[in-house]
């Protein structure tokens, strides 16, 4: 299949030879990764293989001990905390398994948060947040607090928040991990559909193949090493 854009030239976000050690355990031990604009890539592997660490390094949340992460040609470890935070506000979006919503704020305020942090006024921000909630079929929970909504609704709110600032890359770490099959399927459908509509790339960390099946391509992490299977089997 077409492997022309797998190289660093066509990649939106790429990592080379990442190493990260927590205490005595090596979470990443030479991991490579590329993702093109608009692509959905599943990062798979058993528990403790280092998938989440790879995602954290890619998003600039955790600095790798060795190796480099480039986003649009810029090396992330060369950026200040403020600059990396600004990347998280504008260019990146996050959907985690749980715990990422601020319990004190209502759902619509949670979704509006990234816009408010970049200085958008309250009315505009919450207007756009409401549109996204509508699109993710959770307009009815807009005024509720995260503690008052179901797990599936909460994940949809989180997706809305990840997408509201129209990011270039969405980082999703086990986004359906806490959901039942039906809710998980729906959340994945909404997430991938929204990502394709807005042209956002998705780094999708999961250990479930059914969830990974929503991707265009998959990368397997095993013992901290990322093996790009796409290189062998070709991209569908």
């Amino acid at each position: 299949m077409t492997e022309t854009t797998t190289g660093a030239t066509g990649a939106l976000l790429s990592a080379t030879a990442l190493r990260k050690t927590y205490g005595a355990t090596a979470a990443l031990d030479g991991a490579d990764f590329q993702i093109r604009a608009g692509e959905i890539v599943a990062v798979m592997g058993p528990s403790g293989s280092g998938k989440s660490t790879l995602l954290h390094c890619l998003a600039g949340i955790v600095p790798p001990d060795e190796g480099q992460v480039h986003y649009q040609g810029r090396e992330l470890s060369g950026l200040s905390d403020a600059e990396r935070s600004a990347l998280r506000r504008g260019a990146f979006g996050f959907v985690f398994q749980f715990g990422q919503l601020v319990p004190e704020l209502s759902c619509v305020e949670n979704v509006a948060l990234p816009l408010r942090l970049t200085g958008v006024d309250r009315k505009t921000a919450e207007g756009r947040a409401a549109e996204w909630l509508e699109r993710l079929e959770v307009a009815d929970v807009a005024r509720k607090r995260p503690g008052q909504v179901s797990g599936g609704q909460g994940q949809r709110v989180a997706i809305a928040r990840a997408l509201v600032a129209t990011p270039r890359v969405i980082f999703a770490d086990e986004p359906t991990g806490a959901l039942d099959s039906l809710n998980g399927e729906r959340v994945m459908e909404l997430l991938t559909a929204a990502a394709r509509d807005t042209g956002a790339a998705v780094v999708l960390v999961t250990h479930e193949t059914r969830v990974a099946a929503y991707s265009d391509r998959d990368v397997v992490v095993r013992d901290g090493k990322a093996r790009d299977v796409a290189g062998m089997a070709g991209v569908a």
């Binding site: 403020a82 990396r84 600004a86 998280r88 506000r89 996050f94 319990p103 948060l113 990234p114 970049t118």
Partner: peptide
């Protein structure tokens, strides 16, 4: 602290 971590995730820097 958890709340602030959630804020950091959506892009608040340390000073914020």
């Amino acid at each position: 602290d958890q709340r602030l971590a959630a804020l950091r995730l959506v892009g608040a820097d340390n000073a914020m």
